[in-house]
């Protein structure tokens, strides 16, 4: 089956998932992000990559953090940014998702950044937009959050240099996590030899081993000798539906404390996609400790999102020009 994110030359035209993307594409994104990081460290804040292009931030699910980072990234690329927070209930009243998209296309959108509560929403949109319009998935249901995973990969590469000798542990609510799924696919593709997931059985998806991970239910065993600890946010609603008895019990057995982190490699880094629940999945001493790289993640996130938007827009433009050449 053709990967809908790639054109015939295997160039990235939408970013929907980290699954199925070639290593070269992932590395291209990370390399481009590295260039932006270097330039921004030298004080550059504006890059003439997308002048006159309209980026629509289309958030069907609330998120301040992710939307803001996409907004900053698009503005640094000199694009015009339009933010739309579309309450899911207002679409339920009438307009369908695709009607909304077609209306915004008519307003001149060039790139959609989409967050939606349903898995597969970004795929659906990418199948129905006009040629030349790119779609970047900013989180769809439990399925994928590729820019988060890519900024995590950037962070790991920044601090560890390379993936091929690493042990990475992903800790917490794997079942409901689009971040975890996208991290697992990206790590596998980039050559990480040992990916662990640590969670109680209620928070693990069926058949997760087949994604190529080792499953642990015990933090002490799972964290032993790892190089990277990727924590996940635990949503409060997991306390209903019998996934977990309480946040206190979760913290006792699966919260990251200094004691537990001591089992990892001494130079292990601690990541978190934010926003953190201190005292639920992570202890403040760790979150603010010297092994935490949570704030660098945020900074790198801007560069990674710039890289993604720049690449898909460039590749879409090339594809359109190519097709025009054929038509002429």
């Amino acid at each position: 089956m053709k990967n809908p994110q790639l054109d015939a030359n295997k160039a990235l035209i939408h970013l929907l998932s980290t699954e199925g993307l070639p290593r070269a594409v992932l590395e291209q994104i990370l390399d481009r992000a590295a260039e932006y990081v270097t330039e921004m460290e030298q004080g550059h804040k504006k890059f003439p990559v997308l002048p006159g292009k309209s980026v629509f931030n289309l958030f069907f699910e609330n998120s301040t953090r992710t939307r803001t980072t996409f907004e900053i990234a698009a503005k640094r690329l000199s694009a015009d940014v339009i933010n739309l927070n579309i309450n899911a209930s207002s679409t339920a009243k009438g307009e369908t998702l695709l009607d909304t998209i077609h209306n915004l296309e008519a307003m001149g959108a060039d790139l959609f950044v989409v967050r939606h509560a349903q898995s597969g929403a970004a795929h659906l949109i990418s199948q129905h937009v006009k040629p030349g319009i790119a779609v970047v998935n900013a989180g769809d249901g439990r399925h994928a959050h590729p820019t988060q995973a890519l900024l995590d990969m950037y962070t790991i590469r920044h601090f560890k240099g390379d993936f091929t000798g690493l042990r990475v542990a992903i800790v917490g609510d794997i079942l409901h996590s689009r971040v975890a799924r996208s991290q697992i696919h990206a790590l596998s593709t980039l050559g990480c030899p040992e990916i662990r997931v640590i969670a109680p059985k209620t928070l693990l998806p069926v058949g997760v081993e087949q994604l190529g991970v080792h499953v642990y239910h015990d933090m002490a065993a799972g964290l032993k000798d790892v190089d990277v600890v990727a924590m996940l946010r635990l949503q409060n609603e997991r306390m209903s539906g019998a996934y977990l008895p309480s946040t206190q019990e979760f913290f006792k057995y699966y919260g990251l404390t200094a004691d537990k982190l001591a089992l990892a490699r001494p130079d292990a880094i601690v990541m978190h996609p934010g926003p953190m629940n201190r005292g639920v999945e992570i202890d403040s001493a760790v979150a603010d400790g010297h092994q935490a790289v949570i704030l660098p993640q945020v900074t790198f996130g801007i560069a990674v999102r710039m890289a993604v938007m720049a690449l898909v827009a460039e590749n879409q433009a090339r594809a359109v020009a190519h097709n025009k050449g054929y038509a002429a």
Partner: peptide, 8 residues
């Protein structure tokens, strides 16, 4: 495994 992969 497939639904897990798709997040369905």
């Amino acid at each position: 495994e497939y639904a897990s992969r798709l997040g369905l």
